[in-house]
Amino acid sequence: MVPEFMKGFLPLVVFAGIVGALALGLTRDPRILPSELINKPFPEFELSDLHNADATLTKDVLGDRVSLVNVFGSWCMACVQEHPKLMELSGSGVNIIGINWRDSRSKGLQWLDTHGNPYARVIYDPYSRLAIDLGITGAPETFVVDRDGNIRYRHVGIVSDDVWKTRLRPAIEQIKAQS
């Protein structure tokens, strides 16, 4: 089965194989889960507007333009870190829709007062109705949605300069190039 001279090395080979497999596992970030939703339609929803409890928002809020959909909450520490970048992007004309997730209306509004509001509209989702349909596991998360309302990219974590330049902007440019 195995050549005689190699027999002594067999345990070493098995050991090296296990080390290799585990080393590969270490290079993966366990927080990043594969998204099931890429190239699927953004889920339908009926939720209220954070700024107006009487107004119902639906998927129509996305309109027929490319949007970023950003999940945030006043309880979310990392959201504060990415916020200046979102402010800058909305200032330069990027359409950003917010999902205020698992928050109270007053705290959400106060947080936007303090840090500024980069969102064209904010969907209020206190009980994860839309969040679960988006497969969200934490905040912040940002989706790129195309003109037809399909999800094209998902970023889990902070939108930094680097993430914008290497991931989100290319995703948006690719959509724009296609249509």
Binding site: L33, P34, S35, E36, L37, I132, D133, L134, G135, T137
Partner: peptide, 9 residues
Amino acid sequence: YVRDRYGDY
């Protein structure tokens, strides 16, 4: 329904 959104995980 849940698997379609969160995957096999």
